[in-house]
């Protein structure tokens, strides 16, 4: 399978800006030697507490920030290559936290058209792409609506459509659900899963919600600019102690499974023929472990 994102020794340091607009002293190493690779078609979640460097990483994927040292390739393109800047931005679309602050137009379809317009796409083709993108996020009925009358979840779906209309291979989302209510969060997650499964779009999703992280194919936990943990959600969440050290949560059932690993408890359960694995992720799995169906 093809590699969508690859980084080697990726480092980014925020520089103090001096009055002459030149870079001065180093302020903070936001990313410190990150090596990772993301295959095409994967759904990746990046976890980490605020200030861990995960947003910096997201901005680098879209070439909004360039590596201080090390390299980052998106779809084989080196993001520090100035000449390929617009190609990188076209293939790695980006969604931000606040849905209001990323909408340019006052009409849904005009906003979705903004990206392809910037790319210089032919007008009839833009029309077609806009219609397809709105269809894909289930917002076709709102093409002529004003974003002011939409819910947070709907606005984020419009933002996703705006990226889809640019025909990206990768969508990077920086805490897209942080400002939404549970209903809005569910809408956005459903949309992302559909795009990933049906349209084979690679997703890099940054979030604080563990139930969203559990849906990923692969997780990276970033702490102090470094990859602290990585693996499938099952592998990562089963390290309950380590996750808590990093200031992160695990789903309550995973915590329960972990606490049930206590030897005394295990023995009593074993006597009844019950075995609880330490890497349970969902309520269903726990029910099945405690009350096996046959």
């Amino acid at each position: 399978m093809k590699e969508m994102v690859k980084s080697e020794g990726l480092t980014f340091t925020y520089m103090e800006e001096t009055e002459e607009g030149q870079t001065g002293a180093e302020m903070k190493k936001a990313l410190d030697g990150v090596d990772l690779s993301i295959r095409k078609g994967q759904m990746i979640v990046i976890l980490g507490h605020n200030g861990s460097g995960k947003s910096t990483f997201a901005k680098m994927l879209n070439a909004l920030l360039k590596p201080t040292s090390g390299s980052l390739w998106v779809d084989g393109i080196d993001t520090s290559d100035d000449e390929m800047l617009w190609n990188v931005r076209q293939s790695a679309g980006m969604i931000f936290q606040n849905p209001d602050n990323q909408m340019i137009a006052s009409i849904v379809e005009e906003d979705v058209a903004f990206g392809p317009e910037n790319l210089g796409v032919d007008p009839p083709l833009i029309r077609q792409r806009v219609d397809e993108a709105l269809e894909a996020v289930g917002m076709a009925a709102y093409a002529k609506a004003s974003p002011a009358h939409l819910s947070g979840g709907q606005k984020q779906r419009i933002a996703i459509a705006g990226i889809l209309a640019m025909k990206p291979d990768l969508i990077v989302l920086d805490e897209p659900t942080a400002m939404l209510d549970p209903r809005g969060r569910a809408e956005v997650m459903k949309t992302l899963q559909k795009l990933n499964k049906e349209d084979n779009i690679t997703i890099v999703h940054i979030t604080h919600y563990m139930e969203e992280a559990a849906m990923a194919d692969y997780l990276y936990v970033i702490d102090q600019g470094k990859v602290a943990l990585s693996g499938t959600p099952r592998e990562v969440f089963s390290q309950v102690e380590r996750m808590k050290e990093l200031g992160l949560d695990v789903p309550p059932v995973t915590e329960l499974a972990y606490r049930l690993q206590d030897p005394v408890m295990q023995e009593k359960l074993k006597a009844r023929g019950i075995e609880i694995p330490g890497d349970i992720l969902t309520v269903e799995e726990m029910v099945e472990a405690l009350c096996p169906s046959n």
Binding site: G115, G120, R127
Partner: peptide, 19 residues
């Protein structure tokens, strides 16, 4: 907003088309 516009390839009038 400026960051979001840049991320969506906005670079002024140059080469821009209209739906």
């Amino acid at each position: 907003l400026a960051t979001a516009m840049e991320a969506r390839c906005y670079r002024g009038d140059e080469g821009r088309t209209r739906m």
